[in-house]
Nucleic acid binder design. Structure first.
Lengths: 202, 202
DNA sequence: CTGATTATATATCGATTGATACATAACTAT
DNA sequence: ATAGTTATGTATCAATCGATATATAATCAG
């Protein structure tokens, strides 16, 4: 935050882009599967540079998780929040999830946090808090969107926002899993409409 | 199958139990995280014995997946199939899932296949087919249970069995994820009744 | 300029990885 | 008994692991 000082030789690579590449490697190969060689090669830097800029492997890993949570992880949620019509909002959320589950620019599939990071909860210190915080944060945002609809009057006052938010999140998990398992986007779109109807039923 | 021959020195350890221990190690530490030392130590055998009995690390891994699919993976499904009352059957399925997600005799959490194996789909040859087959098989069994209820007349003829089976499966994924993330069983039981109602609505 | 500070590249560290060679032990078949 | 076959234990392989020591290059303040 307070890195106002500029001293010594400046780094010759893009910090954020290197971090993005690191995330991609962790995503596709997992924490243990990603070797320092894999990482440095993808990031375009050498070992000592990596350690100087990001710390050790674990710290780099945590930084990629934070990057994902800030930038990459909320595309479906943003789609859900910005669309005014609630039906279209849900459709947008789920469509984004399906798209996300089946193809990602990094070449990885599924959700980095939900299908890769989560496996290192008991293994890498600092991961558990981040995963739980991600669930908490996402579900709150989803529930808030439903609540807004109640205020608008398009959903009844006793609409179970929190429950439906949790359900939406679980559907997300299912799609991510199917994506990892190799399911196509078309196949997942199949039940989309009936699921939307179900999410809004009361 | 046709191992009718008995020749040479017999093995001095229990094959199935050793395989179970191996599964436990893979489950808790992941594929890459599980070292040969970890495995042989937990299995109570030496390296050469492991390679003689199970092949290399990858083959051992695939064998643990098959073991899980045959024995361990279907506890919730069996609970769903055996209970006659459909409401109680769903409750049994979900309760079993929650219990499964929060505690397991091996000390691992979540579903071995859904939260651990799935991350090695693109990494270890032979895993992808097994994961897809597991989804296919489970969803068919779940749908068949709903179909039986249609035949009994307790559910309407146009009840969407396949859709609800897929939904049930996705809920399972959600619980498994939450379990990995550290959620308690009580917390997950919260929405159970309303979810059952939703699964049976038409 | 000089001195201080930081990033980079080369080379390499000890430790651990997955996997075996070898000799020995224990069993079956003849 | 003898030969054939398989499992086990010891000891160890080359390769790779995560991480660093060292020297050099590039920037800053003065």
């Amino acid at each position: 935050m307070t890195d106002t000082k500029k001293l010594g030789r400046p780094r010759t690579f893009d910090y954020d882009e290197a971090l993005m590449q690191a995330m991609s490697v962790f995503w596709t190969k997992g924490y243990d599967g990603a070797s320092l060689r894999d990482l440095t090669q993808a990031m375009g830097i050498t070992g000592p540079s990596l350690y100087a800029a990001f710390g050790d492997k674990r710290e780099l890993y945590l930084k990629t998780i934070d990057l994902y949570a800030d930038v990459d992880g909320c595309a479906p949620v943003v789609a859900f929040e910005t669309e005014e019509d609630i039906t279209k909002a849900i459709k947008g959320f789920l469509s984004e999830v399906v798209h996300y589950a089946t193809e990602h620019e990094s070449g990885a599939k599924g959700c980095f946090l939900a299908s890769s990071v989560v496996t290192t909860v008991g293994q890498v210190e600092g991961v558990a808090e981040r995963v739980e915080a991600a669930i908490e944060d996402t579900e709150k945002r989803l529930a808030a969107r439903f609540d807004r609809e109640i205020e608008k009057g398009t959903l009844p006052a006793d609409f179970p926002s929190r429950e439906r938010a949790a359900l939406l999140y679980d559907l997300r998990q299912g799609y991510m899993f199917r994506g990892r398992a190799g399911w196509s986007g078309e196949r997942m779109q199949q039940d989309l409409d009936s699921r939307i109807q179900m999410l809004l039923s009361h």
